Amino acid sequence: MDADFVGDNIESDAAALANLGTILIIEDDPRMQKVLRRIFLEEHYAVVVAGDGQTGLDLFRTTRPLAVVLDLILPRISGRELCHTFKSISAETPVIVLSAISEVVDKVLLLELGADDYVTKPFSPRELTARIQAAIRRQRKPASASIFRFADCEIDYQSMTARRNGLPVTLTANEFKLLKYFTDNIHRVLTRELLLNEVWGYNSYPTTRTVDNQILKLRQKLESDPANPKHLLTIYGAGYKFVP
């Protein structure tokens, strides 16, 4: 029996037994397709593969995957356009971009388009699966109340408005995201690396100083005494903790 045929049967059996959901891979390099397919089959996901943007879009609509691994340089429809389209169809489906392009501007652009994370080729299979699983966990978190109140602050996450002592407070989109993660994890000590990965969606860019600066700004806007915070607390040697 042909060895390639046996290998295909093994992968098909693994896909049939998978019960974690379907990963859609959109990649035009056949060798990379094979590598990615095997990685996710070994993690017990079902896998569907598209070699061009239009096929990827068709499969996204028909399979409604658990997550998407998306190359940027594709025939027919570009990865950037696909990312935007996927998020307009199903905003909750995680999209992890996989590309050899590593410039910071591309990372920022993709995050603005709605990508949940960005992994640069060459990559570690363990890192890629960890990023996918983290993105899926973030999307599966139960919905929490839209309005959160603590001390003299009222935060409406749905309308992205904040008030302190009844007066409007202007928060940036990233400040809302960071504060939301804190209020979803009350009393839990959160490391800077965890906050980068869970809030920004990646852990190599920017730097942990970005977290410190964002928390400093939140304290200035929401704490009655920013120099002696009562809610956004520093846990020295560990990270930060939110106490209502």
Results as ranks from 00 to 15, higher is better:
107 K>D: 00
150 F>Y: 15
203 N>C: 11
167 L>R: 15
135 A>E: 06
145 A>D: 14
185 N>S: 12
170 T>G: 01
104 V>S: 10
219 R>I: 05
193 E>N: 12
154 E>D: 07
168 P>E: 04
212 D>E: 15
115 A>V: 04
135 A>W: 02
151 A>P: 08
225 D>F: 09
116 D>I: 02
124 S>T: 04
201 G>E: 03
131 R>K: 14
149 R>D: 13
124 S>Q: 10
208 T>A: 08
176 F>Q: 01
204 S>C: 09
223 E>S: 08
222 L>S: 06
211 V>P: 03
99 S>I: 05
159 S>W: 04
220 Q>G: 15
190 L>A: 10
219 R>H: 07
134 A>M: 13
97 V>W: 00
144 S>H: 09
184 D>T: 09
152 D>V: 03
120 T>W: 03
215 I>G: 07
151 A>F: 11
154 E>M: 13
198 E>G: 06
153 C>T: 15
96 I>K: 00
198 E>N: 09
179 L>M: 14
139 Q>I: 01
142 P>G: 07
172 T>F: 01
122 P>S: 04
108 V>I: 15
146 S>T: 11
176 F>H: 02
158 Q>F: 11
96 I>P: 04
226 P>E: 06
214 Q>W: 10
158 Q>P: 00
204 S>W: 14
157 Y>M: 03
210 T>R: 10
196 L>E: 09
101 I>L: 12
192 R>L: 08
223 E>W: 08
123 F>S: 05
109 L>S: 11
189 V>C: 10
107 K>M: 13
182 F>L: 09
102 S>F: 07
180 K>F: 10
120 T>Q: 10
108 V>E: 12
102 S>P: 00
179 L>W: 08
106 D>Q: 06
140 R>L: 11
118 Y>W: 05
141 K>G: 00
